[in-house]
Amino acid sequence: MIQLTLIGIGTGNPDHLTLQAIAALRDADLVLIPLKGEDKADLAGLRRAMLDRHLTGAPVRLAEFDLPRRDADDPDYLGAVERWHDGIALAWQAQISRHLPQSGRVALLVWGDPSLYDSSLRIAARLDLAVTVIPGITAIQALCAAHAIPLNDLGAPVQITTGRMLRDHGWPAGADTLVVMLDGGCAFQTLPAQGVRIWWGAFLGMEQQILDHGPLSEAGPRIIRRRAEARAAHGWIMDCYLLRRA
């Protein structure tokens, strides 16, 4: 039996790894390092830096491999994602079969936490593997810590959503605080800005961390500009933001 451990690694800072995560990496027979293309080579480099930092003297085999890409032009978004996940599952299986044909312990480093807006658990469910999850620091935690703000108002709910949902359906009913993930199009600009404040962060917890906040009418245009500049400079960007209505 292959034991797959999905390890939450936070937002890129090696200090985000928990002691439990480090112990699991040291126990692994194989660590999978997915590659997402030359423009996102830094992501694999960050994973390697974490391993170099925490696995000194531990003989762990690494397997780097190319990930398939999602067809971004497919109008069937959910169908395209399902087919993409099928391809990723096959890529995982190919590496595991190549390096651990009989049995062993495999570790996969997952940005943030495997349970929050990450599909590693859904992909793993396609394979006949025993799965263990080690939680990590989420981008939401890192965002609130960076801005030194509480996630929720006193006794009030919070809704976590995506840029696609915010753009297509507007502000959800029932919550005055939203956390928006996976927003490559700055969907906040589709909202009425009156009475809304935003707290935004990119590369959270890393050396190149960028923060901005303020009334949406003032901070929104700055964030759009700074996000575009950072993406052009690095070839990729990971960011999220919190919106709160008065």
Rank of each mutant, 00 (worst) to 15 (best):
G45M: 12
G45N: 12
G45R: 11
G45W: 06
L46T: 08
L46A: 10
R47P: 08
R47K: 15
A49P: 00
M50V: 05
M50S: 04
L51A: 08
L51G: 15
D52Q: 14
D52C: 06
R53M: 13
R53Q: 14
R53T: 15
L55T: 04
L55H: 11
L55E: 07
L55D: 08
L55K: 11
T56D: 11
T56K: 15
G57I: 00
G57P: 10
A58H: 15
P59D: 07
V60N: 01
V60P: 06
V60F: 07
R61Y: 00
R61V: 08
A63V: 04
A63K: 04
E64D: 15
E64L: 06
F65Q: 06
F65E: 01
F65T: 03
D66H: 13
L67R: 02
L67S: 10
L67G: 00
P68R: 07
R69F: 13
R70K: 14
R70D: 01
D71H: 05
D71W: 01
A72N: 11
D73E: 15
D73Y: 03
D73G: 07
D74W: 00
D74K: 09
P75L: 09
P75D: 06
D76N: 13
D76T: 09
D76Q: 12
D76Y: 03
Y77C: 10
G79K: 03
G79C: 04
A80N: 10
A80Q: 08
A80T: 10
E82T: 13
E82I: 06
R83L: 09
W84Q: 13
W84P: 03
H85R: 15
D86P: 05
G87I: 07
G87H: 06
G87C: 08
I88Y: 01
I88L: 07
A89G: 04
A89H: 03
L90S: 12
L90Q: 14
L90F: 00
A91Q: 05
A91C: 02
Q93A: 15
Q93W: 11
Q93G: 05
A94S: 12
Q95C: 09
I96D: 03
S97M: 03
R98K: 11
R98T: 12
R98M: 02
R98E: 12
L100H: 01
L100A: 01
P101V: 08
Q102R: 05
Q102Y: 00
G104Q: 02
G104T: 05
R105G: 02
R105I: 09
R105V: 12
V106P: 07
A107L: 03
L109V: 06
V110C: 15
V110K: 10
V110N: 11
W111L: 12
W111F: 11
W111N: 07
G112K: 05
D113K: 10
D113W: 04
D113R: 08
P114V: 14
S115A: 15
S115Q: 11
S115N: 14
L116D: 03
L116E: 01
Y117W: 12
Y117R: 08
D118S: 11
D118L: 07
D118R: 09
S119Y: 04
S119E: 04
S119P: 04
S119T: 14
S120E: 00
S120T: 14
S120F: 04
L121Y: 00
L121E: 12
R122T: 06
R122H: 10
I123M: 11
